[in-house]
Simulated assay, not measured.
Amino acid sequence: MSRKRTENDTESAAATPHGSVDRFGFLKQEHASSPERFSKARTASSTDHDREERKVRKWRKMIGVGGSDWKHYVRRKPNVVKRRIRKGIPDCLRGLVWQLISGSRDLLLMNPGVYEQLVIYETSASELDIIRDISRTFPSHVFFQKRHGPGQRSLYNVLKAYSVYDRDVGYVQGMGFIAGLLLLYMSEEDAFWLLVALLKGAVHAPMEGLYHAGLPLVQQYLFQLESLVKELIPKLGEHFTQEMINPSMYASQWFITVFSYSFPFPLALRIWDVFLSEGVKIVFKVGLALLKYCQDELVKLPFEKLIHALKTFPEDAMNPDTLLPLAYPIKVSKRLEELRVDYEKTIAKRVQP
């Protein structure tokens, strides 16, 4: 299903005058291109296509039919799998691989009929909130544009089902971007179980705290990020302190939507490949790499311009092949654990009578 949708989007892009839809199905801003740039792009795309074909063949061999060889391959060659995921999962296989690395495929198989029950027979206190927000989720994507169209219906069903499945979390606005991203690569039921796998912690630490009242996990992540910026990018950390900039002003959406809200889609996809495989530490690594890459410009800016710059990073900084190689070597795991303990102590002191 996911593959068919991606192919349809690509076909519609090719058939649309002026190429107004990109290969992912998003409406493009029209801009003039020089003939030289077009000819270089055409040559590069032919080479890229051959490279992508070889990559797909490697991945198909690695995962087997429908993912049948995946667990065996991961046990035998975990470092090969990690390296290939970091280079980017082929787009035509992304939906399947995301389900395999997140543990959601196992959840789906263990819970036959549950999703259908939640969608058809249950009611949710969040239904009106979900309906209100649907049109704000990826409004420039062809799949979600039509009011009450298949994309909006699927998004509603997944979010409603989750709000019933986990009534403690219910529905929070940022969840729509995560569910929407998943629906571009898989069926409703698959997207639902991947959302469950993420929030309930099928493979990595549960992330439901991102959406609980008061967003407790977001607060923890922002505390950790602020400390890491001061430690690893001290010049910028000092400038942030002087200008009274804290991470809640620019980084909350990084965590709540795992970069799916405001980052260019090709970069967001590459981050999601690694996020589902390695966990939330990649969000910290990418954030720190981005700040470090832009540090020389950011330290010159006063408060107002700084806030704007932290929400509109330059195009070169958003190139996955530039940013991700800078992010991967950053070591954060041990320090994140230490900072989590520090944060919990800080919170405990606040609630003492």
Rank of each mutant, 00 (worst) to 15 (best):
M1R: 12
R5A: 08
T6H: 14
N8I: 13
T10V: 15
A15L: 15
S20C: 15
S20A: 15
D22Y: 06
L27E: 13
S34H: 05
S34F: 02
S34P: 10
P35T: 07
F38Y: 14
S39E: 14
S45A: 14
H49M: 05
D50C: 12
V56W: 01
K58L: 15
K58Q: 14
G64N: 09
G64W: 05
K71H: 14
K71R: 15
H72W: 05
H72A: 14
Y73V: 15
R76E: 12
N79K: 13
R84M: 12
R86E: 04
D91A: 11
D91P: 07
L93N: 11
V97E: 02
V97C: 00
G103I: 03
L108M: 12
E116S: 12
A125I: 05
S126T: 09
S126P: 02
E127V: 11
D129R: 09
I130H: 09
R136W: 08
T137N: 11
P139V: 04
P139I: 02
V142L: 11
G151Q: 03
G151W: 06
Q152H: 00
R153S: 11
R153G: 12
S154K: 06
N157L: 00
V164H: 10
D168S: 10
V169S: 03
G170L: 00
M175Y: 06
M175K: 10
M175N: 07
I178E: 02
A179H: 00
G180K: 03
L181Y: 11
M186P: 04
E189Y: 08
A191C: 02
L194G: 08
L195G: 02
A197M: 10
G201R: 06
A202Y: 04
V203M: 01
P206Q: 03
Y211M: 11
L215H: 11
P216W: 01
Q219C: 09
Q220G: 04
E226Q: 15
V229Y: 03
L232R: 12
L232C: 11
I233F: 05
I233Y: 07
I233C: 01
K235L: 12
G237C: 08
H239K: 04
F240I: 05
T241W: 05
Q242W: 05
N246C: 13
N246V: 06
W254L: 01
I256A: 14
I256D: 08
I256S: 15
I256N: 13
T257I: 00
T257M: 00
S262N: 15
F263T: 03
F263W: 06
P264T: 01
A268R: 07
A268E: 01
I271N: 05
D273C: 00
F275K: 07
L276Q: 08
S277M: 14
S277L: 14
S277D: 13
E278L: 02
G279Y: 02
F284I: 03
F284H: 00
K285R: 10
K285H: 03
G287H: 10
A289T: 04
K292D: 13
Y293F: 14
H308W: 13
A309W: 02
K311H: 12
T312Q: 14
F313M: 06
D316M: 12
N319K: 15
P320N: 00
T322V: 15
P325W: 01
A327M: 10
P329C: 09
K331W: 04
E338G: 00
R340D: 00
V341D: 10
Y343Q: 05
E344P: 01
K345S: 13
R350C: 06
Q352I: 11
